[in-house]
Amino acid sequence: MSCNTSVTRVQLPPAVDQVPRVPVHLMPCEIEHDGPAQVSQYLTATTKDCKQEKTVSFRGRGLKGQELSCPQGYTGLVLKEINKPGSDQEDRTVKLTSTFDKLTYWNLETPTNSDDTVVMAMDWPELAEAIHGPVED
């Protein structure tokens, strides 16, 4: 119960454009690792750009990908926790480490499509605005 009282502060830099912009890829597999990876060397370098669709071979599997922009008025953020506290009652801090304005999502074998769930998820902010915007009298 007591952990309901703790807050997680988002530490922002003095100016957001000081934060590096990074390419982000949503991969269609679970990679059981957190840490450095040679993404540009093994993924980006071998990606083929064909019209709107990207293709790449990843671990012998054909991936089809597409770039998605963040919804208008929205920015992509990567938050990282710093100084993990020892107990759940202490406040925590996450730091804005990088930003992105578009992401690339990859499907395993299947061509990308407008009804891919991540594409539809980008509609959420617009729907949320209807649900949460102020009503008129």
Binding site: V24, L26, I31, G35, Q38, V39
Partner: peptide
């Protein structure tokens, strides 16, 4: 299910 991120030159499970 079964998704992970590449963020810059890192992997995030």
């Amino acid at each position: 299910d079964f998704h992970s991120w590449f963020v810059g030159q890192t992997v995030q499970r």
